[in-house]
Write a protein that binds this DNA or RNA. Structure first.
Length: 421
RNA sequence: GUGGGUGUAGCUCAGCAGGUUAGAGCACCGGGUUGUGGCCCCGGAGGUCGAGGGUUCGAAUCCCUUCACUCACCCCA
């Protein structure tokens, strides 16, 4: 019985790895320009961390987490998102005492036990950015700007920005009340799912795709109308700064995010090219989370980007530039192969790409392989050459061959191969 | 968890009104050049037709079961 991988947990094969590395390098470059520093957090955390931060009644916590007891009976969870861990690390290491520790990014896999489909997997990868201890609307705008700059740099097509404000606990209270009242009045017209949502998590009804519900939602009270003065001026500030940076946006009063910790400005970068999914990235402010997790009462904002979705959206045409020259060593006969084998190691130590065959195959076969590997040069080492004290260097592009004396050949090759880089 | 679609060579797929040895393209290996890649020509290897059961003289093809993949619902990156 063949052992296969786990459903929704995929391999990334060498042919695709180039794209991933490229995406990561662009993220590192851009985020670093914005003052973000990389932080690496564990894949495993105590279950309680996620339960408390994400919210007990969210789908993630209720039914999507990979949770199990370790050998000591401690309940652990494979992280379903990164923010909770970054906040935890920030608190644990008292980083708020260090003023250079404010902006972080992290890249890595997350785990959610959902049914896989296009753009959605059980192990998926996110690029996260988080900013702590800053609540000026300028910061919200800058974070959003950085997200868009990044997507732009990757040439992700047809990205639109949707924003909303989730208010604060103060304004959410009266809003919740009037929303529940409204939903109570129209409850018999809601779909069965929304019937349930009405009682468990009324805000979720804004996400419903059933037509009658969408109708009703249009008439429902929206949080934006209930914002307190502070939240309102804050939201205005964010919009102003976005505009000043030349960012177009759509205000979507019905946008609801899946995690409970969000407040004030939330946002999503959407594209129509992801099948049933539409978000490539999303995030928002989460001012209360740090205190909830036992840390200082510091504001925070951030976002997550779905890397699989990014990869799906990448232009097929992008090509990862081929690095430097590649030398293939073609050896004929046992003696020559031994010489070549040692020779290859020497060149590699000098930072040159060298590949060779380990079976003794015909020169034709070796040439073919050299071509497949994209070798720019082939060094042919056979009895004829050894007898003359040379090796034949073939330029694969021009097909020009010349003899190189074995004496001092390493330095000679280094020069030739490096100069063309 | 629910529903639809699809499972034939490493990959993309043809074959399916049941009928001799299951095919193609690409990829792979070898030869055409006793030591020279790409293009071309010739040859070769590679398949328990997802698995199990049933119908039949005979099943890749029909029926049942099951598994996997995939898309969608739910929800999200």
């Amino acid at each position: 019985m063949l052992i296969t991988g786990i459903k929704g947990i995929n391999d990334i094969l060498p042919d695709d790895v180039g794209k991933w590395q490229w995406v990561e390098s662009v993220a590192r470059r851009i985020f670093s320009n914005f003052g973000f520093q990389e932080i690496r957090i564990p894949l495993l955390e105590k279950t309680e961390l996620f339960a408390r931060s994400i919210g007990e009644s969210t789908d993630i916590v209720e039914k999507e987490m990979y949770t199990f007891p370790d050998r000591n009976g401690q309940l652990l969870t494979l992280r379903p998102e990164a923010t909770a861990s970054v906040v935890r690390a920030f608190i644990q290491h008292r980083l708020h005492l260090n003023p250079t520790m404010r902006k972080f990014y992290t890249i890595g896999p997350m785990f959610r036990h959902e049914r896989p489909q296009k753009g959605r997997y059980r192990q998926f990868h996110q690029i996260n950015a988080e900013v702590f201890a800053m609540d000026d609307p300028m910061v919200d705008a800058e974070v959003i700007y950085m997200l868009l700059v990044f997507l732009e740099e990757l040439n992700i097509p047809d990205v639109t920005l949707h924003i909303n404000s989730m208010g604060c606990p103060d304004c959410r209270q009266p809003f919740r009340k009037s929303l529940t009242e409204y939903l109570g009045r129209v409850s018999d017209k809601l779909c069965s799912d929304c019937q349930r949502r009405r009682l468990t998590n009324p805000l979720r009804i804004f996400d419903c795709k059933v037509e009658p519900c969408k109708q009703l939602v249009r008439e429902a009270p929206v949080l934006l109308d209930y914002l307190c003065n502070d939240c309102l001026s804050n939201f205005e500030g964010v919009k102003e700064h976005l505009t000043s940076l030349g960012i177009g946006y759509t205000i979507d009063p019905h946008m609801v995010r899946g995690l409970d910790y969000y407040n004030r400005t939330t946002f999503e970068a959407l594209t129509p090219h992801l099948g049933a999914q539409n978000a490539v990235g999303g995030g928002g402010r989460y001012d209360g989370l740090m205190e909830t997790l036992g840390g200082p009462d510091l504001p925070a904002t951030g976002f997550a980007i779905g890397m699989e979705r990014l990869i799906l959206l990448l232009d097929e045409k992008i090509e990862i530039e081929k690095d430097s020259n590649r030398l293939f060593l073609a050896c004929l006969g046992n003696e020559c192969q031994k010489r070549g084998f040692q020779f290859a190691q020497q060149l590699r130590l000098r930072n040159i790409f060298v590949e060779m065959d380990y079976e003794s195959r015909s020169l034709k076969a070796q040439m073919r392989r050299a071509d497949k590997l994209g070798a720019t040069h082939v060094l042919i080492l056979g009895d004829d050459e050894l007898a003359k004290g040379v090796a034949t260097l073939r330029n694969m592009e021009t097909s020009v061959q010349e003899d190189i004396p074995l004496e001092g050949i390493v330095e000679e090759l280094l020069q030739r191969l490096r100069s063309a880089m």
